[in-house]
Amino acid sequence: MNEADQLTHRIDGRATLEQARRFAEETSRVLGGWGLPADRLASWEMAVAEMATNVARHGYPGRSPGPMALQMRWDDDGLRITVEDEGVEYDPSKVPPPPDPDPDDPDTWPEGGMGIMLVRASGDELDYRRRGRTNVLTLFTRIPRNAVL
């Protein structure tokens, strides 16, 4: 196995909330093990939790949870964290951000809809592709390997 192979990690599972939590926990463990900055791990862990939770909640409505996979890859140009599923087509770029909460107006306090905003804030680019029957959502963070290792 060469060095590049060692900096790729994939986990396959079913789209459940419990699996989303496991993906999140695995993210910190794997990325910490790769030597990525400790102060960024919580942010990436949260991003994975949000991406996978969206799939668990909305990907397979009215049927048993289908496949969901997490892949992490750290290349020379940066870190790519991808969640894949075979559920209904879902493009997060079409999700509007929640309104800025006004302290004096409870109607503007968000009880949901914050997930994609948190994912975006955890990296530099969020890319969505529909590949055949598969949703591929990738968070890219510009953190070159040679700048860290």
């Binding site: 999140a24 919580a42 862990e45 949260m46 939790a49 949000e50 939770t53 409870p106 306090w109 968000p110 009880e111 949901g112 809809g113 914050m114 997930g115 948190l118």
Partner: peptide, 18 residues
């Protein structure tokens, strides 16, 4: 760890309290 679901639970409770 907290995520958007956890924040939502806190916001719901805050609204109920207020």
């Amino acid at each position: 760890r907290i995520d958007s679901s956890g924040l939502g639970a806190l916001v719901t409770t805050l609204k109920a309290v207020r």
